[in-house]
Simulated assay, not measured.
Amino acid sequence: MDLSQLAFRTGGLERAAHLRTEWETLWPKARILPMWRGRPLVAGTTGKGGTLRLCLVASDHPIAALQTAEPLFLGQDATSPLFAADISGWSPEDTARDGGPGDPGEAQPAPAIGDLPDDARFPDMRGILMGLTAYEGELAATARGIIEWHRSHGFCASCGAKSNVSQAGWRRDCPACGKMHFPRTDPVVIMLITHGNSILMGRSPGWPDRMYSLLAGFMEPGETIESAVAREVAEEVGLQIGPVRIFASQPWPFPASLMIGCAAEALSRDMHVDPVEIEDALWITREDLADVFADTHPVIRRPRSGAIAQVLMKNWLAGTLP
């Protein structure tokens, strides 16, 4: 199975968890990834032959001084410690360009301070999935995931008091009741459901025009991966399935999911779509899926490169699923 096009796959980041209590001593010699409203600072071009890269700056760079929270220690490489700096408090002159975390709009140019490349900018991460190396993708996904966790979990879930950042961003401590809180990841099953020469694709309400993907859903407490796949398929389209196979996983920091890629054969094609769960579902033949990837299908647009759904479908189309 070819996973080379899977974004956010393991890139070999050395997280060096044992150094998280020493971040203040590491900061002066660190390199920093500025993050603005969930977007990493990048430079270069995307596409074939592109030179897209993360912009890592020295800890004394003026852009790092724009952060309003304690820096996040990401790990280290062969040359220096690596941190992320959340500068979401910075407001550009053209604030109409950005709608907040996750907004896929136009890339925001970096602030004109310090020595930065002319094309330094903050793009939405969904648009640069395949432009970064596996290592830089892991770095950016880690930074976004932890920053989003701090943004949405600032108060103790036990007593409601405001919690404090600890362990270089990898823990929040409650000063009132002593409870320690750690970053969360929400497991999501995403499944390639087949029946003969066809796969099942669906769309959620509010998705962009012509956007379809594989069925997916959050796992529930006490569930196995296999049980979650069977339950979600039954809830969304009323189908029963055979044995579940598990292929790959993908961190998906929008905001904090782990996508678990699976496949199973449906026992029939007789669907009963639940309109509360999904808007529409279709059986797509192998020939139709080839048109989808060529972006010539009349109903379904080409899937997003780098996402695990696209990787599963492409391997099924090529006959390379185990």
Rank of each mutant, 00 (worst) to 15 (best):
L116R: 00
H181L: 10
L132C: 05
S257A: 14
S88E: 12
M313G: 06
T95S: 14
P298M: 10
W27D: 04
H272M: 14
T45R: 12
L132Y: 03
R144Y: 04
P117Y: 04
P303N: 08
W23G: 03
A176P: 06
F182Y: 10
I87G: 03
A65M: 15
G178M: 11
A65L: 15
C177P: 08
L267Y: 07
C159R: 08
W23Q: 10
G261K: 02
L321H: 06
Q67I: 11
D115N: 12
L33Q: 02
Y212L: 04
D118I: 08
A248W: 05
I260H: 00
D2N: 14
A78C: 09
C156M: 09
A263I: 06
P28E: 09
W283Q: 06
T95C: 13
D60C: 07
P205M: 02
A294C: 03
L26Q: 02
D173M: 04
L215R: 01
H272E: 14
D270F: 01
A78S: 13
E232N: 14
R37A: 12
P101H: 13
W283D: 03
D280P: 02
L267H: 10
E22D: 13
T320I: 07
K162I: 11
L258W: 12
I241N: 01
T285L: 02
R15H: 10
T142L: 05
F122R: 05
F293Q: 03
I113H: 03
S166W: 12
C156A: 10
E148D: 11
E106S: 13
H195P: 01
I260G: 00
A96S: 15
G89V: 03
P175M: 11
Q76P: 04
A141Q: 04
E223H: 09
R171E: 14
R245E: 08
S227N: 12
D124E: 15
F73I: 02
C55R: 03
S152V: 10
S198M: 12
A96Q: 13
F218Q: 13
G217M: 05
E223N: 11
L41H: 03
